[in-house]
Design a protein around this nucleic acid. Sequence first.
DNA 1: ATAAATAAGATACTTTGAGTATCTTATTGA
DNA 2: TCAATAAGATACTCAAAGTATCTTATTTAT
Lengths: 199, 199
Amino acid sequence: MVENKKNRRRGDQLQNDIYQAAYNLLKKEGYTNLTFSKIAKAAQTSRSVIYRYWDTPFDLVFEMIHNQMKDSGQIANTNLNGKNLQENLFIIGKSLTTGFNIVLTEFNKMMLSEMIEQPQKIHKLFDEINTGNLQIIDAALQMAIDNKEIKFMPSQQVRLSLFHLIRYSYVIENHNLDDAQLLELINEIVLPAIVASQK
Amino acid sequence: MVENKKNRRRGDQLQNDIYQAAYNLLKKEGYTNLTFSKIAKAAQTSRSVIYRYWDTPFDLVFEMIHNQMKDSGQIANTNLNGKNLQENLFIIGKSLTTGFNIVLTEFNKMMLSEMIEQPQKIHKLFDEINTGNLQIIDAALQMAIDNKEIKFMPSQQVRLSLFHLIRYSYVIENHNLDDAQLLELINEIVLPAIVASQK
DNA sequence: ATAAATAAGATACTTTGAGTATCTTATTGA
DNA sequence: TCAATAAGATACTCAAAGTATCTTATTTAT
């Protein structure tokens, strides 16, 4: 059976194949080397098709990640079944660090390098991320309030510190915290800040 | 008086002029749009001259920043004349935030976007930065020990938290902390972590 | 069932910059 | 003052951006 060269993918299927090709290239060669030409070749389509959907590789990857987030649901539905606040913070931190992958890292770097040109888009995305992060940590803190571990909500800066420090390590220093380091971070910085906020 | 087209800059002067041109372009258009062609045109020299000194725009800017750091001496010589640990932490944080400028920001983003291709160089630089940061905060903490404010040095993670959180805000969220936010960061996170480390 | 609309895919062209190589010429310093 | 060195000009190939035009497979509506 000879393959029929005339089969044409369309719409969502075509877009997903292109995303997949871009994903693999991003993983292999990084954002700097990502071009429409390479993506088209990898996805076995034409450059003109890609131009019809996206203006730049940035737009393509941006929408790819957004798409991916929609499907995977992010950490928002993490199951907070720790027996106290410390354990729930660990669960949250852990789900953040394991959620990292090379494409998200490349995406982070890409966003930073494009910040000067796409500030609106990127600020909006960080707002989305912070909102999601606050949702999950606020759930953990509310449980701690219900359990009388703490009395009231700390400031936003304190509530986001866990995420910011993990993300600093991962995005900027290119290092994913192991369990011991995550625990250290929680015990030495995040929990003391929460405790101090209660006075 | 007609200008003499045959005057040739050389060595350090030429390099500094090229750095200056690159600096202005970086500030105006960001790292993504920085090309040897544009730099050469802006510096009124030839592309081949630039290739003789650097392999890529990344290398050029990397060395430019290193050069600039050498001259300005960084925050290492900050004068810690606060009357207690809290004031000295504020002085340190302040000198970090005021030391930021658009070129350093672009540089940070550039480094992140090149991390996949230049990991050695960049890890080395982050080590340098952390070492410098530890030097200055350790000086402040040693003064606090001498004054009996604290008894011993906190862990490295705690000592670097001030820098990491400031840098997170600046590099990743593109937002420079004002005095009130810096003070909040110190009072709500850094100092509680230091205090907790004393038990 | 077929025609019209739509989207995929091929191709061609211009422009820009990377990277390399070669040449001339200004400047330095032995 | 002459040889060595570095600046600067120029020319070439290649890859990719961006745009435009054309054909053709597939879908949709009649």
